[in-house]
Design a protein around this nucleic acid. Sequence first.
DNA 1: TAGTGGTCTAGACCACAGC
DNA 2: CTGTGGTCTAGACCACTAT
Lengths: 250, 250
Amino acid sequence: MPTIDRRSDRPPYRQIADNLRAAILSGELPPGAKLPSERELAEEYGVERATAHRAVQELYLAGLVAPQQGRGVFVRTRPPVRRISRNRLTRRDQRGFYGDLEDAGLQANVTTTITHRSPPDSVAELLGVEPGTPVLVRDRHMGTANGPALHHVTTYCTPSGVERVAKRAQDNAGPGGMCARFEDAGYELVQQDIVAARMPLPDETTALDIDAGIPILTILRITTDSSTGDTLEVTDVRLAADRNELRYPI
Amino acid sequence: MPTIDRRSDRPPYRQIADNLRAAILSGELPPGAKLPSERELAEEYGVERATAHRAVQELYLAGLVAPQQGRGVFVRTRPPVRRISRNRLTRRDQRGFYGDLEDAGLQANVTTTITHRSPPDSVAELLGVEPGTPVLVRDRHMGTANGPALHHVTTYCTPSGVERVAKRAQDNAGPGGMCARFEDAGYELVQQDIVAARMPLPDETTALDIDAGIPILTILRITTDSSTGDTLEVTDVRLAADRNELRYPI
DNA sequence: TAGTGGTCTAGACCACAGC
DNA sequence: CTGTGGTCTAGACCACTAT
């Protein structure tokens, strides 16, 4: 019999959320299970419906439950996780993105956009250009024909980097991507990944099919010429954190 | 003069949040700036205060603003970021955690707890033990004397792994951690990191000093014996995503 | 004391699911 | 039709901050 301590510092809606969360994490409410309706919760705990709603909202925004209009609130089921290896995304010696999808019996769906625009200040610094300077930018949105979006890749090229591989960068960079083209041209590359996470912006929420309470993983991949130390390109990858993990062999 | 489209599908509180978010991202409301009070927003947009509150709440839960009771709502300032290198956390050939802090003029504050308990099922599988089997667990909570928490590290050891390095694991594992002890014993180690992100649970929120709308980065580091392929230990690291980035040289 | 955000009650209307 | 979650209004009390 759940109840609320009105004298507690913890507000009622949090106490209700705590109880529901504990039931979910203990397995008492397994993935896919239906929570009591907000009106039932309200009566059960002796609060207004708005308060019960806030409790459910708390769990929704933490990614634990998924409300469905007209049906009820259900415990989230974890979607299948893609475990992405270090060099799956750019290196030529991998079948890469497409092979990954073929294995799953899916058809790839890639849209590429080429623009000139000024990169974020942090990227401009890495590229060695003045903030606000437009550079060549390739946006690639990766998805499946009948499924959720997979990831979004933005590649920023330095002017000098573009010159070195000529027009290939303007169009499709070919198998292995830009890096393979740099290697074709005889450069020895050094790469590093900067991995971070944050909450998505609204446009990322729609572009990457991200549910509330799910962060995005971001990878900033920096490619430099090992002999000169020049940065050749910077690639920014964004993925939904509930469907993707990154694997780095050491 | 901001206004609301009552005929739009997008509810009023989201339209207000959109306007504020745009002002923040464009720099019109720079980090540290004070937002209009909820009562001001309510009057400005012709809505009730509760609706204005929801708009601000939206931004709060997305990690963009920080409300302060009695003072107002302020645009979040990004805390300084620690960029953590691949092997900073375990390998012996690094000064590691302590050196990192000394550089910043801080004093380390580590509390270690040793228990026997059953690991999460996913970890049990990696260790090759039955789910529910208690194993040796070392919890280390890392912080600074006068600052926010840094990270939390949980190490799960296989029974066979523990035998091989005897009692060292029970106590302080010594410089370089368990991995160094395995190497002392002549093992060749292979490691891989599985990086993911998720929203924190309430206890992690307090333990790691995490604000609303900030995800946590999780690293699952798996150490195996390269000759036999046995998993020797599994380490789970959790860090606040607004203060930490991971750097993986390739 | 006045202004701020945090929370709750009370009641209402809407869009949507399922019967 | 009933039950569900999504949202808004209207008003209230609290704790906290600053003057």
